[in-house]
């Protein structure tokens, strides 16, 4: 496997690969989102209890799932970057952070829009909401730490350390918040269980979840390629690309 991966440690090859990935995943994500959103927002049956407002689920759930997924992949990339001292992975951590923050913000925003008609309030200090909010601050911390250094390389490494520490902490925060919540109030919020959802609603949801993942990959590759060009701006191959 390493023999196969080896050439991509070269920034030039990695740039081409990430652009190829972006070209492949971007149309996939756009098509998937169009199909999933139209199916979910127009054709899927209305929820018998929540009527049409439950349709926000088709945006809320994929964003919430990948807000956590992105953090995990960021932490793993940061760990590998620190252990094997791979500069390209450091850049990928920074490429992922704002996208994850955006997903988290979308999940929180749509969640509070959904919460207003359903729970009668924009915000409750429920376990899931709280841990999502803290996740947003963790993303912001990673990016703010990077921004506070003059030297980009040091900043990127510091951001990797923080991403790894955050990855250790995310489960602790998640479970402690869950415990806190059950201590103070009983389970009052219905959870979305996979088997308990009708197939006619599950399919558009699954399509959207997959296409948001594709969107994440495409965005990350695009940001990665751009950051790479900036980091290597004095190199010959970059000048050739920019000169074209």
């Amino acid at each position: 496997m390493f023999k196969w991966l080896h050439p991509y440690a070269k920034p030039e090859k990695a740039y081409q690969l990430s652009l190829a990935f972006q070209r492949f995943f971007m149309p996939l994500a756009i098509c998937g989102l169009i199909v999933g959103c139209i199916w979910g927002l127009v054709f899927a049956p209305t929820d018998y209890q929540q009527s049409d407002s439950a349709r926000i689920m088709y945006i809320h759930v994929p964003a919430a799932i990948w807000s956590m997924g992105v953090y995990m992949s960021m932490g793993i990339a940061g760990f590998c970057a620190l252990v094997w001292q791979i500069k390209l992975l450091e850049i990928s951590v920074l490429a992922m952070a704002p996208i994850g923050a955006a997903f988290t913000a979308i999940a929180l925003f749509t969640g509070s829009l959904w919460g207003k008609p359903m729970w009668g309030t924009w915000w409750v200090w429920d376990a899931r909401l709280t841990s999502e909010l803290i996740l947003l601050f963790l993303y912001m911390g990673v990016f703010a730490l990077f921004q506070s250094f003059d030297d980009k390389r040091t900043g990127a490494k510091a951001a990797c350390i923080l991403a790894v520490i955050g990855m250790i902490n995310v489960p602790i925060i998640h479970y402690s918040v869950e415990w806190w919540n059950t201590l103070h109030q009983g389970a009052s919020i219905t959870k979305l269980d996979k088997p308990s959802i009708a197939p006619s609603m599950l399919w558009p949801l699954l399509i959207n979840i997959v296409s948001v993942l594709c969107l994440f990959i495409a965005f990350t590759c695009y940001r990665f390629a751009t950051e790479l060009l900036r980091a290597e701006s004095h190199r010959k191959w970059v000048l050739e690309i920019l000169g074209k």
Binding site: A144, S148, F149, L162, N169, I173, S176
Partner: peptide, 22 residues
């Protein structure tokens, strides 16, 4: 993490408080 950064004053809270929640 912030020892060498000149602009890092406000970032301390952002790094510390989320981790202190548990």
């Amino acid at each position: 993490l912030l020892v060498a950064s000149r602009k890092g004053g406000g970032v301390m809270a952002l790094l510390l408080i989320p981790l202190l929640v548990p």
